[in-house]
Design a protein around this nucleic acid. Sequence first.
DNA 1: CAACATACAAACCATCCTGTATGTAAGTTG
DNA 2: CAACTTACATACAGGATGGTTTGTATGTTG
Lengths: 193, 193
Amino acid sequence: MTPATERIRPTQGQRTDAMRARLLEATLEIIAEEGWANASTQKICKRAGVSRGAQTHHFPTKDSLLIAAVQEIVARYQRDIDTATSRPDGPDQHLEDVFDFLWGACFEGNLLNSWMEVMVASRTDAVLRPAVRETDQTAVTAMRALGDPYGPGAADLVELTVYLLRGMVVQAGVHLDDENRRKLFEVWKKIAC
Amino acid sequence: MTPATERIRPTQGQRTDAMRARLLEATLEIIAEEGWANASTQKICKRAGVSRGAQTHHFPTKDSLLIAAVQEIVARYQRDIDTATSRPDGPDQHLEDVFDFLWGACFEGNLLNSWMEVMVASRTDAVLRPAVRETDQTAVTAMRALGDPYGPGAADLVELTVYLLRGMVVQAGVHLDDENRRKLFEVWKKIAC
DNA sequence: CAACATACAAACCATCCTGTATGTAAGTTG
DNA sequence: CAACTTACATACAGGATGGTTTGTATGTTG
């Protein structure tokens, strides 16, 4: 029974998936807009249009919700990387293009802002740290792999670029001047490539 | 009157200076150990061995205390820079030495950890942001000046190094492995100098 | 269809946080 | 030395937060 046409209320599994997705989306928005420290479960629930009871049902503790959010951030990042690598924009591109891709992935959207919030917070949060460490590890290795086709040492250059961009994105949260950062990044590309 | 030998209780000015210094010191310790988000005035007072009344007397609002702490962080940083520049370790040193100095100032002590806490927090804190922006601006220009003796373009390289090290120090808060970072920094020095 | 599990809403509670009195002792100054 | 200001302690008020509990409606399953 239970034909799809007659079903008014979705199945339990669908409800769970949808609710978790809504809560995670709201969590990411709050982190991006108000910062990790101000991401209270109450705000998240209000943003998601959900009662606190619903949230505690799917994520019984705040930590569980935030850790899920951490993994979601990196999952989205990974998705960007995957699409970038699968699409061969030309059979013979230059390492410089990888740098430009990293720049783009860094400064469009606010994923990296959220990620820096998470990393800084995890330094003093023993519960968070293991989860962040693990996910960050995989993210960094995935980005290093972007450099592999360009000879030995390229992976190191990519990793350096990642740290540089992380420092820059924190800077961008305080200083609006984007021009200077872009200029500096050009300098960096010139000496690294 | 009031000869110094007979004075049991210090003068008002001395008391104020000492109390402010104690509170700022405690604030920096708490930020370094527990993070900006967990730096409550209550914890700070307990750490300083001071009543909350004393704190509110000298810093009537939490923001005023934290902004004072922000400026203290950069003041200490500046002191490091000044002593480094005033001491000519040799009349003809290399730009590489500047990089090493920055590395040292970055990873010994936890000043930079605290500073990254502040910068990340100020992205979503409208009260904090102006103070952080201003103090960071002066700090960055001071560090750029370290490169000036080494020709045009050196200042840019120094600024790039600053951002790189900032990204690395956040990384260090999550991943303990210091060896990899040091190795990467050597790579960076090699291609930049 | 009946027993059971799941999804969610609403209320409650203990804790912590910041700011604000209020009171007292000690410096400072006319 | 008397008026005044400063330094500080204690206590309280109002708000926010995270976790728990209770109640109900709706799948799901034997």
